[in-house]
């Protein structure tokens, strides 16, 4: 155990190229998925937050239910679509980073949508009367709410990223954990642990933790600045 820890520290400090490759791919996949999920989830959340349409309650229930999608199920569904015999098989995306991005996007877009819906609805309750007095259009209202909720929405995005980067079930199914191609931190940890190579597994585990802590600390400090300016 201590040997493994020593090896892990050594791997991290020496900047092992294989390790670096895995970390960078992880970040690329999960950050891209987060950005895409925000592009889909934020407008959707805002629309449901300010919209008054029939079926709104049903949308709310579905959105909240999708938050708890099991990663392996998402992986399986994406696999079925992308596999050679699937409807999107001709794209040849299975076992590529793009497939992993798609799976993670599907996994976290509902989280971004549901959480941002709550944030924006609360803000809208405060602004609605003032905005109606100013005769803003729906679009202007949504834009203003998204901007004024920016610091809370940053936290929402972070929650999505946190779930994506830590997730293993979906990416292992659609990515396949192929060395130098689709191996990310979580799948590598699973593989190395099962092989008994605890050093690499631990090293990756440490990096994963540091990333989680670092991102959280950064967002926290941005929020603190915002709180000081009463922008939250």
């Amino acid at each position: 155990m201590m040997d493994a820890l020593g090896l892990a520290v050594q791997l991290v400090l020496s900047g092992d190229p294989d390790l670096l490759e895995i970390v960078l791919l992880s970040l690329r996949v999960s950050l891209t998925a987060t950005v895409v999920a925000c592009l889909i989830g934020l407008p959707l959340g805002a629309l449901v937050a300010v919209g008054r349409f029939t079926g709104r309650n049903a949308v709310l229930i579905v959105m909240n239910a999708l938050m708890g999608l099991p990663p392996v199920v998402v992986g399986l569904l994406v696999y079925l679509h992308l596999s050679r015999s699937g409807p999107l098989g001709f794209l040849g995306l299975l076992y590529t980073p793009t497939a992993m991005i798609i799976a993670q996007t599907i996994l976290i877009a509902p989280i971004v949508a549901a959480l941002s819906r709550q944030v924006i609805e609360d803000l809208h309750a405060e602004y609605a009367e003032q905005f109606r007095s100013l005769c803003l259009t729906k679009l202007q209202t949504v834009q203003a709410l998204l901007w004024d909720a920016r610091y809370s929405l940053l936290t929402v995005g972070l929650a999505g990223f946190g779930r994506a980067v830590a997730e293993v079930g979906a990416v292992i199914i659609v990515g396949g954990n192929i060395d130098h191609l689709t191996r990310v931190m979580t799948t590598a940890i699973a593989l190395e642990t099962s092989k008994g190579d605890l050093g690499l597994a631990l090293a990756l585990g440490i990096i994963l933790l540091v990333i989680a802590l670092g991102v959280n600390a950064a967002v926290q400090s941005v929020r603190m600045t915002a709180v000081r300016q009463a922008y939250v």
Binding site: E126, Q130, R132, S133, C135, A144, D148, A230, Y231, V232
Partner: peptide
């Protein structure tokens, strides 16, 4: 409404 303006008893200011 657009031809009026109302200063509310408790004004709501944007987070800007």
């Amino acid at each position: 409404t657009a031809r009026h303006a109302l200063v509310f008893q408790k004004p709501v200011l944007l987070r800007r």
